[in-house]
């Protein structure tokens, strides 16, 4: 990974020198060993701080949204999930391909800095699985970048921990009552901090339905009803958009299994409208199933 860090740095410096970019988005080392964090570099000096290591887990594509209205040319590092998110942003016309210079890196699976921090500080007892690889990476289907201008490192095999939709299957096996109780209990933990929305690259609406006050679609109260409303509405908005980067679940301070809901919808979208996997390749003009409309679409359910 040292080697990849050096290469990223060299490329970023070169891009700045050649004035091909205004901004470079990668990672830098934080104050603590496992606190790798996103870096928005604006010049060569900043670029010298770039690193790529086992804690480079953040989905950098979300940061692109900060620049969607500008004209800056942006260099950016992309793992498999970051790159899929970028494809989705391009498909949703939130970004223009020509503004991006993407450096793809095959991802071996990352460690979770939040878990490492929690464990290190003793604020939480973490039952980390396996070899310290983050939970979200154990559901990975595409560790390799699907869109890039330059590719570093070697291709990686996904860190699948088992059957892809095993958690979904268990959920589907429950009776309606059991499922209701499961969600009631799980979602009652939610503190409604909205971090899952903020870190989500698919949440790119300019005005989020949950911020609308007129009408107020979802109450601000922390109650089963409002919590469920929030999560179900959010999850359905993810249908066909979620690229399984798992940032929502990683950021959640109360460990709600958000990816379970997302995976259920991934499975259903694939079953009903597929074969489809969000953001697996960029074809100009292509639209995900739930973003397109044709007159012959079945509409007997309306």
């Amino acid at each position: 990974m040292k080697d990849i860090s050096n290469k990223i740095r060299d490329i970023a410096v070169k891009l700045f020198q050649e004035k091909k970019i205004d901004i470079f988005i990668g990672w830098e080392k934080g104050a603590l060993e496992f606190q790798t964090r996103p870096l928005i570099a604006r010049n060569e000096a900043d670029a010298a701080k770039l690193v790529f290591d086992e804690y480079a887990i953040h989905n950098l594509a979300t940061l692109l949204l900060k620049f969607r209205d500008g004209g800056e040319k942006i260099g950016i590092v992309a793992k498999g999930c970051d790159s899929r998110s970028m494809v989705r942003l391009l498909e949703d016309r939130q970004f223009q391909r020509e503004r991006l210079y993407i450096i793809g890196v095959g991802c071996p699976g990352m460690k979770d800095p939040l878990q490492a921090m929690a464990k290190h500080t003793g604020l939480k007892k973490i039952n980390a699985d396996g070899n310290g690889v983050a939970a979200k990476c154990l559901d990975c289907v595409q560790p390799n970048p699907v869109i890039y201008d330059e590719l570093l490192g070697s291709q990686q095999a996904p860190q699948q921990s088992g059957e892809r939709f095993a958690r979904v299957a268990a959920l589907e096996k429950m009776s309606a009552d059991e499922r209701y109780r499961f969600f009631e209990e799980t979602l009652s933990k939610c503190i409604r901090c909205y971090a899952c929305r903020q870190v989500c690259p698919a949440c790119n609406c300019r005005t989020c339905i949950f911020d609308e006050m007129k009408p107020q679609w979802v109450g601000r109260e922390n109650s089963t009803t409002d919590n469920m409303m929030y999560h179900l509405v959010k999850a359905s908005h993810m249908a066909g958009r979620c690229v399984e980067c798992g940032e929502c679940e990683r950021a959640c301070p109360v460990d709600i299994p958000l990816m379970l809901l997302n995976q259920k919808l991934i499975k259903d979208v694939n079953a009903f409208f597929g074969p489809y996997e969000a953001g697996m390749s960029y074809i100009e003009g292509a639209k995900p199933p739930l973003s397109s409309y044709a007159e012959k679409d079945p509409d007997d359910f309306i």
Binding site: G30, M117, A251
Partner: peptide, 9 residues
């Protein structure tokens, strides 16, 4: 410091 998903300290 522990909870920030963006590593802000």
């Amino acid at each position: 410091i522990v909870a920030c998903p963006a590593g802000i300290n």
